[in-house]
Design a protein around this nucleic acid. Sequence first.
RNA 1: CGGAGCGUAGCGCAGCCUGGUAGCGCAUCAGACUGGGGGUCUGGGGGUCGCGGGUUCAAAUCCCGCCGCUCCGACCA
Length: 441
Amino acid sequence: MRRSRYFLPTLKETPAEAQIASHRLMLRAGMIRQSSAGIYSWLPLGLRVLRNVERIVREEQDAAGCQELLMPTVQPAELWRESGRYDDYGKEMLRITDRHGRDMVYGPTHEEIITEIFRSYIKSYRDLPKNLYQVQWKFRDEVRPRFGVMRGREFLMKDNYSFDLDKDGSRRSYDNMYATYLRTFARMGLRAIPVKADPGAIGGDMSHEFHVLAETGEGAVYYDAAFDDLDLSGGAESVARLQGLYAAADDKHDAKACPVPPERLRNARGIEVGHIFYFGTKYSAPMGAVVTGPNGESITVEMGSYGIGVSRLVAAIIEAYHDDAGIIWPAGVAPFPVGLINLKVGDAACDEACAEIYATLLEHSMDVLYDDRDESPGAKFADMDLIGLPWQVVVGPRGIKSGRVEIKERKSGQRQELSLESLFAKLPGELAETGLALLPG
RNA sequence: CGGAGCGUAGCGCAGCCUGGUAGCGCAUCAGACUGGGGGUCUGGGGGUCGCGGGUUCAAAUCCCGCCGCUCCGACCA
């Protein structure tokens, strides 16, 4: 993409309202635009990141045996009355009336809708288990939205719902999601600690929140120091082992009853990026989600629900990966894997070299942001650092004279000069495969 | 929802106390120079001063009401 044509309104100055790094950087990098309190437009660069996060979430959901569907944002109040939550949910739920005077709600979550779908079609125990997910916008009319998309009123969430015949099955579904969540967050470069949590308005009797530790986190978590040395990528450590270790959200933590000795207890702030619930028959019972069992009996299904804050994750990743100059995107979520900087637009040799590199990158399916604007070198470097692309290819008159371009890694700041030939030699191999192997070592 | 604060150009702000032609920096536009970390010069454009009412010869400025936004606390992916 040519920067001169790309809609990327970066800001040199920080908007006054932004209190935390991710909010500041998302505004400055031209990723989002506030529409009203807690409600944002996603501009092209931001949307690219959001889509990348979504993609990883989807891949992990699919790999875990979940199937995607899409439910409506606007839901009939009737279903919420059935579950008993219409009155329970409070002012956080946005209530709307349609032209016929019918009560509707803008969905803050989708247990009611999915249960209604399930009960309409699934009649036999032989069709269980089922696990359905969606990635959909939610609206919760937060009293005090803040920190940009970290706590917006409108937010994008992956939510899924498991249906099982019995508790054991439901427990397997729960643990499956537990491991899936660890893998999902790990793929975005995040270490998320699973902590026992209060199920809150969703209800139920077992629940874990996944917290990315960060000073700007809104919640306090207490955990066994053993977590600091564990592999949380959802692979090596067993779910049972992790669940056996103590970690609790502050509303679940009781200093007197805590099994962890004080010297091993850690207290930190965390960003809640995921939350899983097992709630048994809380919705299936009142809403009549039952299947016929092997002996012809009626069995109320056991349910769980599982949420990942997709839009919040974008902010959480930035909280975890930035420096004074801007964002440092981890592999996989970066809006572009590589940026190309032409330091002297209008100079025939620079223009030509850039055009060649640009075309070659595209040939190898490398999505590249080519800064072809007639700006000062400093402005371009600062801008490129701000938006945090993992790799920068720098083409300037000084290097071109000796037939060389510079490759810079955003994360380490490490630079290396390469001849055009050796750059192109890398393209079919390491670069094209990983998108991230421009530098040896 | 309780407490505090702020609304003046795209962004950051000054002006308000003490009423009298709406300003600064950045950004933007035109041209020229420049070219390895937000460069320089010249010239230009852009404002219902959040909205409504009141006081006054005169309101960004004083008064009243409303709306919006932000921050601090109680709730949540």
